[in-house]
Design a protein around this nucleic acid. Structure first.
Lengths: 199, 199
DNA sequence: CAAACTATCTAGACATTGTAAAGATACCTT
DNA sequence: AAGGTATCTTTACAATGTCTAGATAGTTTG
């Protein structure tokens, strides 16, 4: 076991770990093929062997994130004693815990749209989402579709707006010490009343 | 008026137009300083003079988009005869008409966070959004904040998921010929019932 | 009206990146 | 042991962001 063996042995996983480190530490724009190679201590062209190109690396990392989210969603109890918004809360918690990864997962112009691993991860995550909204079968009514889409959209919209910094002005008007989660709960309370109340 | 005068005269606006053309035609990743210069027929370093760097150009373009959205929102009637979801529909319509621009507007890691023009445009857009939700004053109750955030999040979430291609599987289960707007309306109908119904 | 001044654009240069091609090294099968 | 294959390195090149210096055209000022 030399200090720097020619053959790494598990370079693909090491590169994914290095890539996520860079993503968290320096942001998506700093996550380049060469930066991942430097972080992993290999030559600059090594990532190309395992991932083909930069979209290939980003896609593999996004798939890791989606599977991680799926695992979180899988923890949520099914009916009858599940709470309506537990999936939404888990969705936000994931986005808050993995902000840059979450944003990468939904940055489709940087990903390979037909990557089998990515498509499979997305399908599984979608099924988990549907399950938490009480939809287990494959056939949806339009009303069920609206219900599922609404739950996803309101959680996803809040998470993306928050990570993007767009909710900061609103948070600034809340009582001191308020967290994004407090605003999230206020939003959910409003949603249960139909989102149409005046105040 | 020569064919290619040394001084363009209105190069800044021409570069913004060129940039939006590239954005629509080739996507965000193809929108580079040099591509904008080529599209406008000037030297590769000309955009640097007007916008400083690439984030400067993208920020200026994002501000254009935000002001355009503000204008759309301003058309929406205030109470009492406004319809609850007209702002959400206008929000989606804008995102559908300007998909790449909409995505750029919310891609904060590519923008200059403190750019005065951008900040001002965002503030104005936010006020329009609040107005369409029946909130005109500066002081919000927490319930009002939840109401405002919910309306924004559900529209924004739907728009981003749709543009990202994430709603395609759901649209595929709808009756043939269904549009994204149909799913949007189904979602809004569910939202008015509290997003908690089973079907 | 001319000269100085400033704003606007071009030309050249360099570091960084993605990516392809060819070579080197280690593992693996037989 | 030998050949074959997988894994990684080295080399090379085009594209980009961005800096610097230079060229050109308005604009102001005497």
């Amino acid at each position: 076991m030399k200090a720097t063996p020619y053959h790494h042995g598990a370079l693909r996983d090491a590169l994914l770990t290095a890539a996520e480190t860079i993503l968290q530490r320096d942001g998506l724009l700093a996550l380049t093929l060469r930066a991942a190679a430097r972080e992993a201590g290999v030559s600059h062209a090594a990532p190309g062997y395992h991932f083909g190109d930069l979209p290939g690396l980003l896609t593999a990392l996004a798939a890791v994130g989606i599977r991680r989210l799926s695992t979180q969603l899988r923890q949520i109890k099914s009916s009858p004693d599940r709470r309506t918004w537990d999936a939404a809360r888990a969705y936000l918690a994931f986005a808050r815990a993995n902000p840059a990864l979450f944003q990468l997962m939904f940055q489709s112009d940087r990903l390979q749209p037909d990557n089998p691993s990515l498509v499979e991860a997305r399908t599984e995550a979608m099924q988990q989402l549907a399950r938490t909204r009480g939809i287990d079968d494959q056939e949806f009514s339009v009303a069920q579709l609206g219900h599922l889409t609404g739950g996803w959209a309101i959680a996803h919209g809040f998470a993306t707006l928050l990570l993007d910094g767009r909710l900061a002005p609103l948070l600034g008007t809340m009582p001191p010490g308020s967290t994004p989660e407090d605003l999230f709960e206020a939003m959910l309370a409003s949603a249960e009343k139909g989102l149409i109340g005046q105040n």
